Amino acid sequence: MQHPTNTTPNQPPPLGRRERNKLKVKERLYDAAITLFAEHGYDETSIDEIAERADVARGTFFNYFQRKEDLLTAWGEQRRHTLLTTLTNNNIHTGTNTSTSTGTGTGTGTGNADSNGSGSSGGNSTDGNSGRGAESRNGNGNGNGNGNGTDGSPGSHTHGSSDNSTTNPDTAVNQLRHCMTALGQINETHQQETNSLLMAWVRAGRPLLEDPYLAELFAHIAHHGITHHEFKPHFTPHQIGNALRDLYLGSLYRWCGQPHTTPGQLTTELHTTLNLILEGILTTQHTDQ
């Protein structure tokens, strides 16, 4: 007689013992690699050292990763999963299914209540259950672009507009601010890791080869803003999404290149670049030539 299982039609069946053991080994290898990269640098860390730290044979490494560069892909996927989980838990419309896990996370990072982008679970977590959340709510927003907003981000004021974008969490503006807060905290919570891996990620061509999920995420929010008349329809959602992604990566590269940083510096810079897009640099008196 067959006994019914507890799984639902939308749930995958539970992993067997062999699959669970394989997943644990892969997680050990990933965790060992990320720790060594943060301690010594990506280029300075060998596969032998990763296997030794994970307490497995060198050949076992190649059962899970064909080459060391594959760890960069896993790192990027974990950051993506952490960000999307954080945003989803903060009711941000990502337009993306976050139910799948890459199975390489360590379970450490920035949590969802406050969110690293990842409260996501700081960049390396698959479940987003630990760390700091995306929302600090300790601001005193004064509406002049210099204070802290209701979500702990730098306040903004768009030429005296009277819209409710600063009070309604469902607006596209506030969704973008949550994104920038989460991205800033993901990187700042794991600064040494980010510094060690970002340049290796760039040299491996990952910004060109990987799916530009950030641009798509920003475009999804921009579409919401355009259809709800928050944003001018002069530009397409994809143009806005690509511009925001480019500004994010530029801010991240500059931050990683600085020998000394202060807490919250990257997050503040990201909100400044966001305000640059939202407010523009033209005076209200400007007319097209």
Rank of each mutant, 00 (worst) to 15 (best):
H3D: 15
P4L: 13
T5V: 10
T8S: 12
T8M: 11
P9R: 08
Q11S: 11
P13R: 11
P13C: 13
E19A: 15
V25L: 12
I34F: 08
T35W: 08
L36W: 05
L36E: 13
F37I: 13
A38V: 10
G41S: 14
E44R: 06
I47Q: 06
D48P: 00
I50S: 12
D55Q: 13
G59Y: 08
F62Q: 15
L71R: 06
T73Y: 05
E77C: 03
L83C: 07
L84K: 00
N90D: 06
N90F: 00
G95W: 09
G105V: 03
G119V: 00
G119L: 03
N124V: 04
S125V: 02
T126A: 06
S130L: 05
R132H: 01
G133V: 00
R137E: 03
G149T: 06
S156H: 03
H159V: 14
S162H: 05
T171H: 09
R177M: 08
T181E: 12
G184T: 04
E188V: 04
T194V: 11
L198C: 02
L198R: 02
W201A: 02
W201C: 01
R203I: 01
Y213E: 15
F218L: 08
K232M: 08
T236F: 09
H238K: 11
A243W: 08
L244G: 07
R245G: 09
L247C: 13
L249R: 09
G250T: 13
P259Y: 02
G264H: 03
E269K: 08
L274I: 08
I281D: 13
T287V: 07
Q289D: 11
Q289S: 10
Q289E: 12
